[in-house]
Write a protein that binds this DNA or RNA. Structure first.
Lengths: 221, 221
DNA sequence: TAATTATTTTAGGTTTGTCTAAAATAATTT
DNA sequence: AAATTATTTTAGACAAACCTAAAATAATTA
């Protein structure tokens, strides 16, 4: 496994995240994701292509090669282990871990990461509920359901938040919703797709479609 | 406190270490320390001068300004806290921590470092026995004595190793000498300046002048 | 002191990663 | 299908950090 620059790693990670939904990723999408310019993206795509990390034909978009995906997963492993460390050991709050982990993730000593993993007790998900790849880049793909699609009165556990902006985290914090929170959907309102949800030992309250769209759960009590 | 690039930080740190002995540092010394070329050093000195981190007149060498010293001490703080973390929590061996800490030290979140400090229980020295600066860059200057200068039969504790090459660490490991090791000097041989030392529950053995020169101790049992 | 040697700086070039402006291609609308 | 609009790529430039080779300065030796 070769070493890649911080910049290269950020591009690889961005493409990995973007291609989860659609299979192929465009220049503009990456430029927007990384707050850079399309011309810079094209430059980097040419470079990553020569390194065989992605497939790329001019004007046709691109997607990671198997090798590229593996690199991406190892970066994500580093990122999520550091997030777990920051939240669990250093008592960072949920919404602060991401930014610091963005920097720590580029320290690429395999031994460091494997020992960190061991020290943390081989956690399976990070503080946002996202699964942590193992040292071979294998990731647990567990069936997540969007809160919008959750049937009424079915107990579920929050396991992931789509958008991770500060605004949404502030709102979730205010409403006492976090990873691991148990809830049921009590009512759905077709008018605006808002829904009423119930959390143990709390009165039911309403959340918007916008918010529900970004909350993902697993079945379970 | 501004942010500096990894490269700038490495130069600042190198100058700080070199000027401990002499007051002023030369271009060649820094080039050698950082395995780079004198021309590159001159470039960087001009840059750091405009940032008011050091005093520099062409051909006259340079030394850090008070501001530059403070920056250096905060980098050293990060380095040594990570070293402590790696050794104490992740069970890295003594001679492996330095290299990884070289990378981690450039992640410059103050909150991260202060919380790490707290998590570690505010350690006062790193695994090499070097003192850890506090969050204001204040450092404890305790009286260290070179093993060469230690009087006979005076109990002392190893607190620092001068040279930190892998070769010396391997040797120290083999002889069971590490930070915190208690010892006494039993005999000194003027012929080659070698000395016989005694470690608790071990037979006395001999070490070379070369080695003794690089071992520093504090008085104490 | 003059000549030689060593050190340091300057001048100009390279690589990485970025940018702007213009050209090429693709997608959309009329 | 042609024209317009949007996207992507190319061309050329820039800053950071490095390099080599040559010039300038300082230190040393004869």
């Amino acid at each position: 496994m070769l070493n890649y620059s911080t910049s290269e790693e950020n591009y690889i990670k961005a493409i990995f995240h973007l291609q989860q939904d659609e299979g192929t990723v465009t220049t503009n999408e990456v430029a927007h994701e990384l707050s850079t310019k399309p011309a810079s993206v094209t430059d980097m795509m040419k470079k990553l292509k020569t390194k065989k990390l992605l497939y790329y034909q001019p004007y046709q978009g691109f997607r990671l090669s198997p090798e590229g995906k593996k690199v991406a997963l190892l970066i994500i492993r580093r990122h999520r282990l550091w997030e777990y460390f920051l939240a669990e050991k250093l008592k960072f709050s949920w919404d602060e871990v991401h930014e610091v982990a963005e920097h720590l993730e580029h320290v690429s000593s395999k031994k460091l990461i494997d020992k960190l993993d061991e020290f943390l007790g081989f956690p399976r998900v990070d503080p946002h509920g996202d699964p942590i790849p193992d040292e071979n880049g294998k990731i647990e793909t567990s069936p997540q359901v969007c809160l919008l699609d959750l049937p009424l009165n079915k107990p579920a556990i929050v396991c992931h938040v789509g958008d991770q902006s500060n605004q949404i985290l502030e709102l979730l914090n205010h409403k006492n919703i976090g990873i691991g929170t148990r809830m049921e959907v009590k009512k759905k309102f077709d008018f605006d797709n808002s829904m009423e949800i119930k959390i143990r030992q709390q009165l039911p309250f309403t959340i918007s479609e916008q918010l529900a769209k970004n909350i993902f759960v697993r079945y379970g009590t």
